[in-house]
Design a protein around this nucleic acid. Structure first.
Lengths: 188, 188
DNA sequence: ACCTGAACACCGTTCAAGT
DNA sequence: ACCTGAACACCGTTCAAGT
């Protein structure tokens, strides 16, 4: 049976999850699917377009924030969930960052973030700017943690020390976020 | 005369400023310096190490914030100056982001940011987390603007529309920042 | 419609050998 | 000490030709 675009994207996600962005090459992807590299270009215009699809797939299975929470809490919850989802996948921040750059509209949670930001107290004029700030914080924090993990793999420190700064990065993320939320609530 | 490490870094910065990260290759850099690509590896361990030096060079000529301003204003001023400096150089966010990931200590303004964050009202425990948040916001905003500029180059819209969203990105950056500062001051 | 084979124009990095 | 030449092991993308 012929290859499908969905199959190409799914296998790309799989490759990313298992080996990271450096090993997600068109040639490797072709090998995995049993086709010549050129064949992929019938289903996908470029590697960039493929990566935007991959990012969308990563963001798809994100849990919607429960509607019964106070908005400030729900906002923190969504940001933390987003962060947690992305740290799981190697170079997750890089891939979503690229998609966000190429096509901001493709980063789905931005809409939910904006809604919660406004519900938490921001005037409509600040809505999107603050939502973008939250996303930048998520991507920055994930990138920092992932590249430090990578450094740890290459030059291994003790396991406990490694776990230590994972927690530290997650904790720092929430501290920064809470200061922002304070500002949001204060502007109400 | 023999090549020096400084010369290699300076020429790399020049190449970045003129043509962007995609054209800053070891081979191109060698050509520019009139040496074989392999020669560079006598002065620099890897491309990654070179890029960390390049990022440091970009951040060096950043103006120190004037000491007589109220800290909240100085913080905003420094963040805006940092943003402005980085949008000028193509892929500036990418290069500094990489350096920050590889070696956070190499990103000099982080120290000044942290100092101002604390002076603006943050308790010492929140200091570094909020400084990191500010940096993430700067890098995210710069990356968003630069990749949208790139998209504009490839598929040109009207010049006025382009300028419009540059201003919009800078404006959104400051709005987000001001909400954060509000949270900082509120925690005093 | 979908894919292969082969090419084009590149990469970063290493390393024996030269000066 | 510093650099060349040449290689190794790759890239993304295109495109005539096949089925």
């Amino acid at each position: 049976m012929a290859l499908s675009r969905e199959q190409v994207v799914e296998t790309a996600v799989d490759l990313l999850r298992r080996y990271g962005l450096a090993d997600l090459t068109m040639r490797r992807l072709g090998r995995e699917l049993g086709v010549a590299p050129g064949a992929l270009y019938w289903h996908v215009a470029s590697k960039q377009e493929l990566l935007v699809e991959v990012a969308a797939a990563l963001l798809e299975q994100l849990p919607e924030p429960p509607a019964d929470q106070p908005p400030a809490e729900a906002l923190v919850g969504l940001a933390v969930a987003l962060r947690e989802a992305l740290v799981q996948v190697p170079d997750g921040a890089g891939v979503v960052g690229l998609a966000y750059a190429v096509d901001p509209g493709s980063v789905r949670p931005l809409g939910s973030l904006a809604r919660l930001v406004q519900a938490a107290g921001a005037p409509p004029t600040e809505r999107d700017a603050v939502a973008a700030l939250v996303l930048h914080h998520v991507l920055g924090s994930v990138a920092a943690q992932q590249d430090r993990e990578l450094a740890g793999t290459l030059q291994p420190t003790s396991a406990s020390a490694s776990v230590g700064h994972l927690d530290a990065e997650a904790k720092a993320f929430e501290v920064g976020l809470s200061v922002l939320v304070r500002g949001l609530v204060a502007s109400r």
